[in-house]
Structures are given as structure tokens and as C-alpha cells.
């Protein structure tokens, strides 16, 4: 698990580097990414892959929003690299491979699970971010 946490950290930090996140925010993006990956691994068996990815994406978006407010940065700076380890790249690859091998049933199965996983990531981000939006709107009105 520790190795996986480290891999998640390396992955998110490297992608943060590719997308040119400000250098001082790199480790934070990495930590959020690592956290998301670990949450996914811990919940995968109990909740299934889609449920695990959903929970992980929600937590990643939540911590990105918190960090963005704390460190006065755009949310994207943390959110984009941290979401990357949750992207269903392997399932998408499997879809392509099955199509190549004329296995249309297998291709359809992995295509549907790619769509579900991507949808779970999107739903997680939407839920956490809209909660934050409602919260900051409410704070704005009170002032």
C-alpha cells in the first residue's frame, strides 16, 4: 500500500509537471493525487470499481477545493493532476485491444465500464465542487 501511495504521488506530481503547475504547488497536487489513488484501492473491493472511483474522485475534488482556498490558487492547479490516476486508461486500452481482436462482446463490455468509470469521476467532481459553490455562495450572501 505504501508503494502504491508513493506511485500515486509520483504519477500526480509528474502530470502536474507536464501541465506546468506552479512549482511550489507541485507537492500538494501530488499528495492529493496519492490520497485519491489510495482511497480507490481501499474501497475497490467493498464498493466495486465504479463506487471506489466515485468516492476517490469526490475526496480528491473536496481536498482540491480546500487547498485552493487555503493556498489562494485556482482549483484546476490541484484538481487536474490529482484526478489523472483515476482516469480509466486501462479500460480504454482494453476496449481498443478487444476491437482489434474482433472480440466485439468484450469490447462492448470494457467500453461500458470505461464510460461508467469516467462518469463516476465526473460525478465525484461535480458533487464536491457544487457543495463548495453552494457554501461560498451562502457565505457571500450573508456578508
Amino acid at each position: 500500500m505504501l508503494v502504491q501511495a508513493l506511485i500515486g504521488f509520483i504519477g500526480a506530481t509528474a502530470f502536474a509537471y507536464i501541465y506546468r503547475v506552479p512549482t511550489r504547488q507541485l507537492p500538494y497536487a501530488g499528495i492529493v493525487g496519492s490520497l485519491g489513488h489510495v482511497i480507490f484501492l481501499l474501497t475497490r473491493d467493498e464498493w466495486g470499481e465504479v463506487g471506489g472511483v466515485f468516492l476517490a474522485a469526490t475526496m480528491v475534488a473536496f481536498f482540491s477545493e480546500v487547498l485552493a482556498r487555503r493556498r489562494r490558487q485556482p482549483v484546476l492547479v490541484f484538481l487536474i493532476p490529482a484526478v489523472i490516476p483515476l482516469v480509466p486508461g486501462a479500460k480504454a486500452y482494453l476496449t481498443m485491444l478487444s476491437f482489434l481482436q474482433d472480440d466485439y462482446t468484450g469490447a462492448l463490455v470494457s467500453f461500458i465500464s470505461t464510460v461508467l468509470l469516467a462518469g463516476a469521476v465526473a460525478a465525484g467532481i461535480i458533487i464536491a465542487s457544487s457543495l463548495f459553490r453552494i457554501y461560498s455562495r451562502a457565505k457571500h450572501v450573508r456578508r
Binding site: 506511485i7 500515486g8 509520483i10 504519477g11 509528474a14 509537471y17 507536464i18 489513488h37 490516476p85
Partner: peptide, 17 residues
């Protein structure tokens, strides 16, 4: 150097899967 560090992302992904 930037691209080598970017390559670490590829490494991490292969190992995640």
C-alpha cells in the same frame, strides 16, 4: 529535464495498472 520528469508519470501509470 521537464520531459524526463513527465516520463515518471508514464512509469507511475504502468505500475498503477
Amino acid at each position: 529535464g521537464r520531459q524526463l520528469i513527465g516520463g515518471a508519470g508514464a512509469m507511475a501509470f504502468t505500475m498503477i495498472f
